[in-house]
Design a protein around this nucleic acid. Structure first.
Lengths: 117, 117
DNA sequence: CGCATTCATCGATGAATGTCAATATCGAAG
DNA sequence: CTTCGATATTGACATTCATCGATGAATGCG
C-alpha cells in the first residue's frame, strides 16, 4: 500500500457522500435486535410459537410439538430453549411435563421495533 | 413489586378466552417468513436499513456505508445483496455508483405478519 | 425399590453464514 | 484506447447453527 496521505476529492463528496438527515440505529441496539430476530428466524421456532398460541389453554408441552413438527425430541427442546432465552416463551414444569407459554407482548414489541427502523 | 392485574377489557373476552385460537401457521408460510426474518436478523443489515432510511433522499450508495459500518467493501455488497434478494431494498445504478433505497412497506408487512403469529 | 415416562444436556456432524483478500466487471474520464 | 474508480463476484476460512443419537436427571407408579 503506497498511499500515505489520503486526500478527499470534493467531487466525490458531493456526488456520493451526502449529509445524514435522521439518527440511524446504534450498533448496540442493532446487535440486540438482531439477536432477538435470530431467535425467531427459523421455520421450526415460528411454528412452535404459532402452535403454542393455537393450543388449548395457550400452553403446550414438548410431547405436543414433537410429532407435528416431525423433529426429534432433543431438537424440539433445543428450539424451546432458544425461544425461552430470547424472552418469547416461559417454561413451567408440572410433574414430568414442561409446559410452555407465550410471553405476552414479546412478539408485538419486536414488530414495533421493526416498524421504527 | 408484585403485579398481577387483569388488563383485558370485556370486549376482548371472546378473543382472549376462546378455547381454541386460530389455526397454526403452515410449514410453507413458516419457511418463507423465516427466510425474510433471516435476511434482517443481522446487526450489519439492520444498521444498513436504518442508515439508508436516515440518509438524504432516503438512498445511499456502498461508499456511504462502508466506513461507518467498519466493514470491507465486499462484505457490505454481500449484505446489500441479501437485503435486495429479500425484498427490503432496491438497487439503482447511476454512473459508477449503486444507490440503494428502502422498499416501502416491506418492513411493515413483516411486522404485521409477526403480530398474527 | 425398580421401572417407565418426560424432558434436558452432551457430543458429533454436516450445512449455512459472515468476513475478507483477490479478482472481475463496468462505466467515466483523460 | 487506456486508465481509474466504484461495485460485484469468487474463493477461502472460521464461526455459528440445526439436527440427531446417546445419555442423564427428575418424576410418577406399582
Amino acid at each position: 500500500m503506497h498511499v500515505t496521505v489520503e486526500l478527499l476529492p470534493l467531487h466525490d463528496l458531493q456526488a456520493c457522500c451526502a449529509p445524514i438527515v435522521g439518527e440511524p440505529i446504534t450498533p448496540t441496539n442493532a446487535q440486540s435486535l438482531a439477536k432477538a430476530l435470530k431467535a425467531i428466524a427459523d421455520p421450526a421456532r415460528l411454528r412452535i410459537l404459532s402452535m403454542v398460541a393455537a393450543h388449548e389453554d395457550r400452553e403446550a408441552c414438548v410431547c405436543d410439538l414433537t410429532e407435528p413438527l416431525d423433529l426429534a425430541q432433543p431438537t424440539v427442546s433445543h428450539h424451546l430453549k432458544v425461544l425461552v432465552d430470547g424472552g418469547f416463551l416461559t417454561r413451567t414444569k408440572r410433574g414430568t411435563w414442561a409446559y410452555y407459554r407465550l410471553v405476552p407482548g414479546a412478539l408485538d414489541s419486536i414488530a414495533g421495533l421493526l416498524a421504527t427502523v
